[in-house]
C-alpha cells in the first residue's frame, strides 16, 4: 500500500485557518523526501464546503469526516474520531500546526497511535533517507535536530516557519463520510474573544518593547520616555509583563498576543523565545538590548547592544536628542 501522510487541517466558522497554508508548504517538503501521498483530514459538523476549499491550489485529496454536533473544537471528540480514523488510514506521518488546537491534539494522538511526537518543528531535512526535524530548545538558546524511531510520527510545525506558497490551480478528490461521536466528558461552551491588540500598538511605526529584563515596574517609565522620542510610537511587552499586569494584555507582542510589523522594534530586556519572535519578526529594523551576550533575541536583531537596559536607555534618549538638535 502506498504510504500516506495525514494533514490535520483546522477550520473555523467555515473558513480554513490561516496556518493551513503553512501546513501545505510543509507537506510539499515532506512529500519530496518521503514520496508519501499527503491527504488532508478535517472534522466538523457541516464540513463539505470548507473541505472543497481545502483542496484548491494543492491537489491533495481531502477526507472530510462529518461529525454531527461538532460545531467547533472539542478535544475529546477530535481525539476519539481521529484515533479510529488514523488507525485505519495508517499514515507514516500525521502533521499538524502547533496552534492551540495542534498542541492539544498532537501528543494525545501520538500516544493513541504509538507514534513519536515532535513539536514546534521549524525545518525539515533529509540525509541518506533519514528525515530530521529542527526545533528550538531552551527558549531559543539552541536548536536541536530530531529524528523519529517509530513507524508513525506525529509532527507539529511552528506557525510562521513555512511560508505559504502558491502551487498553481489543481484540486484533488473530496471524500465526505460520517461518524457519530458524542463527547461524554467534555462539554464545549464556545469561544470568548481576546483583548485584541491595542490600537496604539497596531498602528505604531516604532515599538519600544519591554521584557522581564527591565526588572521593576517603575523602570517602564524610562521606556515610555524613550518611546516619546519617536512619533507614532508605542510601548509593547512580553507575556510575563502582561501576566503580571505591568502593562495591559493588549500590549503583548507574540504568538498569544499581537503580531506587529513596525518600522523599528526595540527589544529591551527580552530573551527572544520563539513565541515572542513570532509576533515581531516582520518588523523593519530590530534593535535588541540585553545583558546576556547569548540571548536568542540577538539572532533576530539588526543591531545588538549588550548591556543593562536601565543604564542604556537614558544614554540612548540623550543621543537621540542630540541627533534631533543637529537635524
Amino acid at each position: 500500500m502506498e504510504a500516506t501522510v495525514a494533514l490535520i487541517a483546522e477550520h473555523f466558522n467555515g473558513a480554513l485557518s490561516p496556518t493551513f497554508f503553512e501546513l501545505i508548504t510543509f507537506a510539499n517538503k515532506l512529500k519530496i523526501v518521503t514520496q508519501a501521498k499527503p491527504t488532508i483530514v478535517m472534522l466538523g459538523e457541516e464540513i463539505e464546503e470548507v473541505a472543497n476549499k481545502a483542496t484548491h491550489f494543492n491537489g491533495f485529496d481531502v477526507i472530510a469526516i462529518e461529525v454531527p454536533g461538532l460545531a467547533s473544537y472539542n478535544p475529546e471528540t477530535y481525539k476519539a474520531v481521529l484515533k479510529s480514523f488514523l488507525e485505519e488510514l495508517k499514515p507514516s506521518f500525521v502533521c499538524l500546526v502547533q496552534t492551540s488546537t495542534g498542541a492539544d491534539l498532537a501528543p494525545a494522538l501520538s500516544v493513541k497511535l504509538g507514534a513519536a511526537c515532535i513539536s514546534s518543528v521549524q525545518e525539515i531535512s533529509s540525509e541518506s533517507g533519514r528525515i530530521t526535524f529542527l526545533r528550538s530548545v531552551l527558549g531559543g538558546k539552541a536548536q536541536a535536530v530530531f529524528s523519529a524511531m517509530t513507524d508513525i510520527t506525529v509532527v507539529s510545525i511552528q506557525p510562521g516557519c513555512f511560508e505559504r506558497a502558491d502551487t498553481g490551480a489543481c484540486s484533488g478528490n473530496v471524500n465526505v463520510s460520517r461518524r457519530a461521536y458524542r463527547s461524554l466528558r467534555i462539554q464545549d461552551l464556545g469561544v470568548r474573544p481576546g483583548p485584541g491588540c491595542d490600537l496604539l500598538l497596531s498602528e505604531a511605526k516604532v515599538i519600544i518593547s519591554a521584557g522581564r529584563g527591565i526588572r521593576q515596574k517603575q523602570n517602564l517609565a524610562l521606556l515610555f520616555e524613550l518611546a516619546a522620542m519617536f512619533s507614532r510610537s508605542a510601548v509593547g511587552c512580553t507575556r510575563p509583563l502582561s501576566d503580571s499586569g505591568w502593562l495591559n494584555s493588549g500590549s503583548q507582542v507574540g504568538l498569544s498576543g499581537a503580531i506587529v510589523s513596525p518600522d523599528l522594534y526595540v527589544a529591551c530586556g527580552i530573551s527572544g523565545a520563539q513565541q515572542h519572535i513570532a509576533g515581531m519578526q516582520g518588523s523593519g529594523f530590530v534593535v535588541a538590548i540585553n545583558t546576556d551576550h547569548y540571548a536568542p533575541i540577538f539572532n533576530h536583531s539588526d543591531v545588538c547592544v549588550v548591556c543593562d537596559v536601565i543604564e542604556f536607555a537614558p544614554e540612548l534618549i540623550k543621543a537621540i536628542a542630540k541627533y534631533r538638535q543637529v537635524t
Binding site: S110, A115, A116, C117, I118, R130, T132, S136, V137, G140, K141, A142, Q143, A144, V145, F146, S147, A148, M149, T150, T153, Q281, V286, Y294, P296, F298, N299, H300, S301, D302, V303, C304, V305, V306, C307, E311, F312, E315, L316, K318, A319, K322
Partner: peptide, 29 residues
C-alpha cells in the same frame, strides 16, 4: 524512547546581528 536528537547547535541568525562596541554613551551615539 521514540525520538532522539541527532544534533544540537547554537541557533542560526535571521538578521545581521551587528554588535555595538565601546562605552555606554559610545554605543548609544
Amino acid at each position: 524512547t521514540r525520538e532522539r536528537p541527532e544534533l544540537i547547535r547554537h541557533p542560526s541568525k535571521s538578521r545581521q546581528s551587528l554588535i555595538l562596541e565601546g562605552t555606554l554613551s559610545e554605543k548609544a551615539l
